[in-house]
Computed example of a mutant assay.
Amino acid sequence: MADADVPASVAPLAADKKVDGVPFLAEAPPCRYIKQKLIGKGAYGEAWMVKRAEDGQVFVAKIMDLTSTPEKRRKYAFAEVRCLKNCNHPNVIQYMEDSGVEGSEIVIIMELADACDLGTQLRNGNVTFSEREAGILFTQLILALHHIHSRRVIHRDIKSGNIFLTTCGLLKIGDFGFSQQYDQTVSDSVAGTFLGTPYYLSPEMWRSKRYGKKTDVWAAGVVLYETLAHKRPFQGSSLSDLKRNVLEGHIEPIPDVGREMMELIFSTMNPDPDKRPSTTQILAMPLMQHYTTMFHNIVIRDAKIAPDVKQRIVAAIAKAQDDVKNNNNFVDDADDPR
């Protein structure tokens, strides 16, 4: 929904909006959410750990300053709210609420994943994932993408830094700032805007061609490779070098990684999006069926995972397996929303 319409009528300023007579977000009560700790800062906003005043529960508040934000980036803020609202899956960061917007800022309250992001863990070098562990993480990533795609959303910025982990071993996709939601029509290639992080861009994006959900599948394959190899499959000293390496398409096998796993990686990074598998086709692969069953069994046995979360995960797996059985690919249901 990169080109979502800005509402004609808007809510009061985020910092001043009253909920039950108190500000939405502030440094100290009385307010609905209390700032605790700055956890991230970018060109157009900040991310804060916040505490809900009524019960002390901790969340993340993403605050975007709209006064210094280009118009297109403002639209991404509206896109993020809409796409987060439209997704409800245990492997997707959960939307809680937002402040409403007007001129100054928008505040989005989201679930907190308590073990940082995958990219940080890989960069720090203090975590090494076995093939089994990487397979279980990738299964969760594909289950999440499968749900996102079923909701007619393309994420467009899948990368290790946007994949968040929890202390009970769950993976959650976050940061829908570049996401795009589209109306259900007939064409698969839905977007033409060059977005995302360069190391994870698919060949069709580098060629400035129209692209669909398969661009998320490519990026997921890059993340899987990165998780196992502790390096990205394509490097470059400049954007032009990186582009050339991606388009040449040579992927070095990862030492000590099994044949089936490498075949999975190669399939997700097929340079032809028409030959790249959908999330349904990935989940149908024997290796992924094995990891899906393994993930299901781990969730059932893990005492650290809350019962209600277990129920949501089991239901999400069952829904995905039904889609595999019925060959629901969600790849022929989109057109350019513009």
Rank of each mutant, 00 (worst) to 15 (best):
T292D: 05
V190S: 06
Y211T: 14
D241S: 13
C168E: 14
V10H: 02
L264A: 08
N124T: 04
C31M: 01
G100M: 00
K18C: 05
D114M: 05
K209C: 15
S130P: 06
A284E: 07
D216V: 11
E97S: 07
G100D: 00
K18M: 14
V92T: 08
S160R: 06
C87N: 11
Q180Y: 02
M262T: 13
D241E: 12
T268L: 15
A61C: 12
K17H: 15
A219L: 02
K35T: 02
D20Y: 06
M64S: 13
C31E: 00
V186R: 13
D157H: 03
M205P: 08
A26G: 14
R156T: 08
D114W: 01
S187N: 10
M262K: 09
I265R: 07
K319G: 07
F138M: 09
S150L: 05
Q321Y: 01
Q281T: 09
Q57L: 12
G42T: 00
A229V: 04
G100S: 00
Q94A: 15
L283D: 03
V10L: 06
A220R: 05
G125Y: 02
P203S: 08
A8G: 03
P277N: 05
M64D: 00
I148S: 10
A284Q: 07
A79L: 00
P307W: 03
I265E: 08
P12C: 04
T279E: 03
N329P: 00
E248T: 08
V101W: 01
V153M: 00
V101Y: 03
K325F: 11
L118H: 02
D20K: 12
D216Q: 03
R32Y: 01
R73G: 04
K85N: 08
Q184W: 02
L38C: 12
G196Q: 03
E27P: 00
D175K: 07
A2T: 11
R312I: 03
K51C: 12
T128Q: 03
T292A: 06
F138A: 13
M288F: 07
I39K: 12
P286A: 14
K41H: 09
L137P: 09
D188P: 08
P7A: 09
S104P: 00
K72R: 11
L228R: 15
I109T: 02
L118N: 04
V299C: 14
R338S: 10
L228H: 13
L264Q: 08
V50H: 11
V10F: 00
T69Q: 05
Q180N: 15
A134P: 06
Q181G: 14
G258K: 06
L38I: 05
P23T: 05
R52D: 01
D332C: 02
R301M: 15
L224E: 10
T128H: 05
N297W: 03
E46S: 14
G169T: 09
I136A: 15
G135C: 07
K319A: 15
D256W: 02
S187G: 05
G100A: 01
K213V: 12
N162R: 03
S238N: 09
Y211R: 10
Y200L: 01
C87A: 13
E226A: 15
H146P: 05
I93T: 10
Q281C: 02
A15C: 09
T67K: 12
R207I: 01
A26C: 09
I142Q: 12
S179G: 10
S240F: 09
G221C: 06
I282Q: 07
L242S: 11
I106P: 08
G40N: 08
A134H: 04
D117G: 05
P253D: 12
Y211C: 11
D117K: 01
V246M: 13
A144S: 11
M96G: 10
